[in-house]
Nucleic acid binder design. Structure first.
Lengths: 137, 137
DNA sequence: AACAATATTAGAATTAGTCTAAATTTATAT
DNA sequence: ATATAAATTTAGACTAATTCTAATATTGTT
C-alpha cells in the first residue's frame, strides 16, 4: 500500500483526507478519469465532498507535477496519474483510452526549428486489439 | 480563389451559403478557430447565422474528412482545415498554436502491439521562437 | 406550383468549470 | 493547551460551451 500522505508531503501539499483520496483514486484508476467520475466514486467515502475541491486539488496536483491533464476532443478534462512520457491510444469503437509506448522521434528538451519542446502529448486513434478481434468474426 | 461550392459538392454536402462561408473561413484562418470565433467573424456577413448551424456544419465537415477537430486541454473545440498529417506546437507563453512538421516514428496504417492506428495527433508544448527571442533580452 | 426533404434558426436545457464568501479545519505562536 | 492566523473545503450562484427541440425557411423533385 502506497503512502499517499508522504507523496503529498514530499511535494509540499498538505495532506487533507480529500487530497489523499483523490490521489489514491487516480493511482488506482488509470483510465484517465474526469472530475465527475472522481466525484461519483468518492462521494460515498467523503459525503461532504464538493466538486470545487476536486477542481482545486487537480489544479494543485498538476502544478506540482503529481498528475497530468491530457488533451482530448470532447471538451471534458481527463487526468492521468502516469506523468512519465507515454502516449495514448483512443479506440474509435469502444472509446477506451489506452496507455501505450511509442518511440517518438522527438525528445523532451530538444529544439525543432527553434521551438523549444519541453512536453509532448501523442494521441493515436484507431481500433484496439479487442474490438479488432470482435469485428473480425 | 478556391471553389468551395465544388469542394462541398464533391463530398456530397449541399452547399448552403452558411457552409460555404464556414469552410472558406477555416481555409483562410489556419489558427484553429473555435465556434465562437467563427460566429463572431461571420455574423456581419450572415446576420441570421446561428451557432447551432456552425456546430452542425463542423460535425458534418469532420465526418466527411474536410476538417479535423484538434485535441486540447481547455475544453473548447478547435478546428483545423489542414487534414494532412502534421503536428501542433503550443507555446506556453503566448498560447499560440503553430503547425509544425515532426518526423513521427509512427505511420498511419501501422499496427502497434495489435492496435491499428489510422490517425494521430501530436501536441508539443514549450516556448516558441518569438517568445524565446523576447525572453533572452 | 405542390410537396417532401433538408437546413437553419431561436431559445430552452444541459453540462463542465469558475467565482465567491462563509464555514470548517489545520497550523502557529504564545 | 488556547487564541489566532492561515489554509482548505464547501454550497450555491454564475458563466460559457454545447446539445436538444420544435418551428420556420430553403431547396430539390415531380
Amino acid at each position: 500500500m502506497k503512502d499517499y500522505t508522504q507523496i503529498l508531503r514530499n511535494k509540499k501539499i498538505s495532506p487533507s483526507i480529500q487530497r489523499i483520496k483523490i490521489l489514491e483514486f487516480l493511482d488506482q484508476h488509470r483510465t484517465h478519469p474526469t472530475v465527475d467520475e472522481i466525484f461519483t466514486s468518492l462521494i460515498p467515502i467523503i459525503p461532504t465532498l464538493s466538486k470545487m475541491t476536486i477542481y482545486n486539488t487537480l489544479k494543485i496536483f498538476s502544478a506540482k507535477g503529481l498528475i497530468k491533464s491530457i488533451p482530448n476532443s470532447e471538451n471534458v478534462g481527463h487526468y492521468d496519474f502516469n506523468v512519465s512520457p507515454h502516449s495514448h491510444f483512443k479506440c474509435r469503437l469502444c472509446k477506451k483510452v489506452y496507455d501505450i509506448d511509442v518511440d517518438l522521434g522527438v525528445t523532451i528538451g530538444t529544439d525543432i526549428d527553434g521551438y523549444k519542446v519541453d512536453e509532448y502529448n501523442l494521441i493515436l486513434e484507431g481500433v484496439c486489439k479487442e474490438c479488432n478481434e470482435r469485428i473480425k468474426k
